[in-house]
Write a protein that binds this DNA or RNA. Sequence first.
DNA 1: CTGAAAGCGCTTACAG
DNA 2: CTGAAAGCGCTTACAG
Lengths: 349, 349
Amino acid sequence: MNHPVTSAKNKPTSIDIAYLTGFSQATVSRALRNSPLVSEATRRKVQAVARQLNYKVDKNASNLRTQHSGTLALLFFEDPTSDDSHINPFFVSMLGSITRACTRHGYDLLISFQQASDDWHADYADSKKADGIILLGYGDYLTYCDKARKLVEQGTHFVRWGAVLADQPDTSIGCDNFSGGRSVAEHLLEQGCRRIAFLGEASTHYPEFFERYRGYTEALVDAGLKVDDDLCEVAESTEESGYQAMTALLERKTRFDGVFAASDLIAMGAMRALESRGMNIPEDVAVAGFDDVPGAGFAHPPLTTVRQDTSEAGTILVERLLGQIRGERVDSAILPTRLVVRKSSLRNG
Amino acid sequence: MNHPVTSAKNKPTSIDIAYLTGFSQATVSRALRNSPLVSEATRRKVQAVARQLNYKVDKNASNLRTQHSGTLALLFFEDPTSDDSHINPFFVSMLGSITRACTRHGYDLLISFQQASDDWHADYADSKKADGIILLGYGDYLTYCDKARKLVEQGTHFVRWGAVLADQPDTSIGCDNFSGGRSVAEHLLEQGCRRIAFLGEASTHYPEFFERYRGYTEALVDAGLKVDDDLCEVAESTEESGYQAMTALLERKTRFDGVFAASDLIAMGAMRALESRGMNIPEDVAVAGFDDVPGAGFAHPPLTTVRQDTSEAGTILVERLLGQIRGERVDSAILPTRLVVRKSSLRNG
DNA sequence: CTGAAAGCGCTTACAG
DNA sequence: CTGAAAGCGCTTACAG
């Protein structure tokens, strides 16, 4: 009846501790979890032995038993084109704040990068590896909606960072893209710009950009200007795409004195294109972006942009998701934005 | 004897599929895992029903049974000072390539950010949430060594990105910091620099930086120059620290015509400080960094630096870790570096 | 406060 | 090729 003493090879189990302390395995389990059903003395004895053996509860076993994993999954959608080194810095900030929020709530975070086009690797929840999922990254919104509906049907717990629109099936958290876009356009108008270009794909497929665009057009119209389609150039959210969009715009010889890029990456590419043509920013062309990525302040010239509070965003994403997991009804949320004026748009003063 | 048909509420199990197909649960399990022990017809029937029910194997159950998790954990050490938005871009690249390498090998990735000073949250392996751990991020090397030794004793599978030195207890993967540092100094000398400052903490606590420093001093000595301690300024790897180090250097009124910053972030901060004093780069001072972070090429002026192949690094980290998990003996590895010359250091031509 | 027992949902010898 | 059975290591009613 001798219990094999834990060897260096095999991780200790609660049975080992039970044997060593003389208690039953059930009591050991309770003591380890600080159950009030266990006496102080027992708790101490058990925990001392556990520490000594470097015992850690087997999560696979406890998760199987309790039916939850204490883990959240972050699905990160990226362009098929992007490589290792070019993860959108805005999403990096989000990743940071989401990770921190998870830690605060005692959850672990599983991450997965995927092509927006692929079939989602969204089975983390179905396979019980995660209790819920956070969706991050741009992709075609309409395609997303179809998939989101399926997830909702299946009862998968998930939240998403993105545009908050009417009649969405999911819980979305996003910033106020419309008023952010409007504030940029108003600012450029104040700086004396009269022909303001827009760089970004403004369509129902990319509602974040579309809302920013709508804010921009509204500001123009309110200022008595008309929207000139010649000043709009499609771009996705990369530096390279911004460079190309600006190059295309310049080649069209359309006159413009301001640029609202739908994201900072686009803005940075656009500034590079402008500079390579010898144009001065902001004297010849005032430029503004959106996101306030780390680096926007170090750009040349420092970039005027719209700040989204990633720290708050991450916190809310995690909290709403955990609420959903607890079975609460949670709503979508729109976060305020803030215009950050820097040199790239300041023409006087 | 009627088996309750799976309701929308409860996730289906292999028992449900067994009931629906008429096979035993064991056969269902085999069929789902494409075991050769099962007939083609059975396999198809089982998998069809599984698909229909949106059945996914419960990972907690299968992990418990097989005793491995199919998951790797990435522990990311960061400065206590850093906030969400300032994750070192070099490590972001590593994160990208590690994630991709995991995906290729069919592993999931758990990530955790932690303060280097804290007790490590390294129990992912002990609690069986992960089969192995990847350590990333700078921190005091000597402190690390103590902890690494304990992990090795416990039989924890782990690899680390960092300096590869003699007598290390662990498996480390790092770049050739010494020759990288040497190549930078040689290049600056070729550009006519004679008084080259070094920015970074060169001590045994930070062996990566120390090796870069050693490469730098060797190049100077080989060129018949002497190493001037007055030209060295301690800095940690942040933009802000680089700015401050350069400011301190300038205030000391020591003459210098070149700067080797131990990392790109330091270099970028240093360039900002130089510019704010009206100095021209590279005419007055040639500058070079280390890492080739995304953004180095977009800096003003574009930054000369040493490229570390993060894609290769991530791949090797994951592969060696998986080898270790399989019980193979794996060695540390030193990856080659490549000098990337850009405008910040080009004084003629 | 403690213990004996059941069971979470799988995988895999063992037997046929 | 298939099934009955054991067991991975926990947590938690149930009984005392």
